[in-house]
Deep mutational scan, measured.
Amino acid sequence: TLFEALYDYEARTEDDLSFHKGEKFQILNSSEGDWWEARSLTTGETGYIPSIYLAPV
């Protein structure tokens, strides 16, 4: 399942991933609670993103 960003997000740590509204992600690991490891389909970068900023596509 792909997810789309509902809002912009600016990374706060080196493990976080910055993204823009409308960016799409492949989720790599969603077992860490509210922060999911994801790969951006726009940039190819991976990192942790807040799941509350996402909606399934």
Rank of each mutant, 00 (worst) to 15 (best):
E4P: 00
L2G: 02
T43G: 02
G22M: 03
L6A: 04
E4M: 13
K24T: 09
T1P: 12
R39C: 09
W35F: 12
W35H: 08
L41I: 09
W36M: 04
D34N: 08
Y7G: 07
S31G: 13
W35S: 07
L6P: 00
Y48H: 08
E37N: 07
H20T: 14
K21C: 05
N29K: 08
L17G: 01
E32K: 14
T42Y: 09
L28C: 06
K24M: 13
S30G: 11
R12F: 08
G44N: 08
S31L: 13
G47C: 03
L2V: 13
F3C: 05
S51H: 11
D16G: 15
Y7E: 10
A5R: 00
A11Y: 02
F25C: 01
D34V: 09
E32D: 15
L2M: 09
A5N: 00
E32P: 09
S30I: 12
S18H: 05
Y9F: 09
P50A: 09
I49C: 03
G22E: 02
E10S: 10
G33P: 15
L17A: 02
A38G: 09
L2H: 07
I49K: 00
T42M: 10
E37V: 15
R39D: 02
T46W: 08
A11M: 04
G47K: 03
I27T: 02
T1H: 13
I27W: 01
N29R: 07
P50C: 10
L28A: 04
S31V: 11
T43E: 01
P56G: 05
G22W: 05
D8R: 04
F19M: 14
L54Y: 01
E45T: 08
D16H: 15
Y48L: 14
W36N: 01
H20F: 14
Y53N: 04
L28M: 08
D15N: 15
D8F: 04
A5D: 00
H20A: 11
T46R: 10
Y9Q: 02
E14H: 12
L54G: 01
S51I: 09
A38E: 01
F19S: 02
I49T: 02
L54D: 00
W35E: 05
D8K: 05
A5Q: 00
V57C: 08
V57K: 03
S31R: 10
T46G: 03
I49Y: 01
L17Y: 06
I27M: 03
L2C: 08
V57Y: 10
E10Q: 13
F3Y: 15
T43F: 02
E23C: 04
D15L: 14
S18R: 04
I49H: 00
E37D: 04
A38F: 03
E14Q: 12
G47E: 01
D34T: 10
D16K: 15
S18N: 05
L17D: 00
A11R: 09
L28P: 02
S40T: 03
P50G: 06
W36G: 00
T43R: 04
L6G: 02
F19D: 00
A55V: 13
L6C: 06
V57N: 04
A38Q: 01
P56Y: 06
T43Y: 02
R39G: 02
K21R: 11
E10M: 11
T13H: 15
L2W: 10
A5Y: 01
L6D: 02
E10D: 11
A55E: 08
F3P: 00
T42F: 10
F3H: 05
K24R: 15
G33M: 13
E10H: 11
E14P: 12
D16R: 15
R39N: 05
F25L: 05
Y7L: 10
S30T: 13
G47H: 07
E45A: 12
H20D: 06
F3T: 02
S18G: 08
I49S: 01
G22T: 03
G44L: 07
L6Y: 04
L6M: 11
D16P: 02
L28F: 06
E45H: 11
T42A: 12
R12S: 12
W36S: 01
I52D: 13
S51P: 08
I52V: 12
S31E: 11
E10T: 13
E32T: 13
S30W: 13
S30L: 10
Q26V: 14
D8I: 02
S18F: 03
G47Q: 03
D34E: 12
D15W: 15
W36Y: 06
Y53E: 01
S18E: 03
T46K: 11
L2N: 05
P50K: 12
W35R: 15
I49P: 00
A55R: 13
E10W: 09
H20K: 15
A38V: 15
E14W: 09
E45P: 00
E4Y: 15
A38W: 01
R12V: 12
K21Q: 08
Y53G: 06
P50N: 15
H20G: 08
T42E: 14
Y53I: 07
E32N: 15
I52Y: 12
I27D: 00
G47Y: 07
W35T: 07
Y53A: 14
E14K: 12
L41K: 04
D34I: 10
E4Q: 12
S18V: 03
E14G: 13
G44E: 05
E23Q: 07
L28G: 02
Y7D: 09
W35N: 07
Y9L: 04
E10C: 07
E32F: 12
T1A: 13
G47R: 03
T46E: 09
L2A: 06
T43P: 00
I52L: 14
E23N: 05
D34W: 11
Y9S: 03
F25Y: 02
F3W: 15
N29W: 07
A38M: 07
S31C: 10
L17R: 03
E4S: 06
E14I: 10
T1D: 13
I49M: 02
S51W: 13
E32Y: 13
P50D: 08
Y53H: 06
I52W: 14
Q26H: 11
N29A: 08
E4N: 04
E10Y: 10
T13R: 14
W36C: 03
R12M: 11
Y53K: 04
F25V: 01
F3S: 02
W36D: 01
K21Y: 05
D15M: 15
K24D: 01
L6Q: 07
E37R: 09
F25S: 00
E37W: 15
T42N: 09
P56L: 09
I27S: 01
P56C: 05
T1C: 07
W36E: 01
F3M: 08
L28S: 04
E14V: 11
F3L: 03
H20N: 10
F19Y: 03
E45Q: 15
F3G: 01
T46V: 14
P56R: 06
G33D: 14
V57D: 06
T42D: 11
N29M: 07
E45L: 15
D34R: 06
T42K: 12
D15V: 14
T43Q: 02
S51D: 02
P50Q: 14
S30F: 15
W36F: 06
H20P: 05
E32M: 14
S51L: 07
G33Q: 13
L54M: 10
P50R: 10
T1E: 10
L17P: 02
G47A: 04
N29V: 08
Y9R: 05
E37C: 11
F3Q: 03
D15H: 15
L2P: 04
E23M: 06
A38R: 00
G47D: 01
L54N: 00
E32L: 14
Y48V: 09
G33W: 10
D34S: 10
E32I: 11
A38P: 00
S30M: 14
T46F: 07
G44S: 05
E37G: 04
F3A: 04
T13L: 10
I27Q: 01
I49A: 05
D34P: 09
K21P: 03
I52S: 15
V57A: 08
G22K: 04
E32G: 15
G44D: 06
T42P: 01
G22L: 03
V57F: 10
N29Y: 07
D34M: 12
Y48C: 07
F19I: 09
A38S: 04
L41N: 05
K24S: 05
H20Q: 12
Y48W: 15
L2Y: 11
Y53T: 04
R12P: 09
Y9E: 01
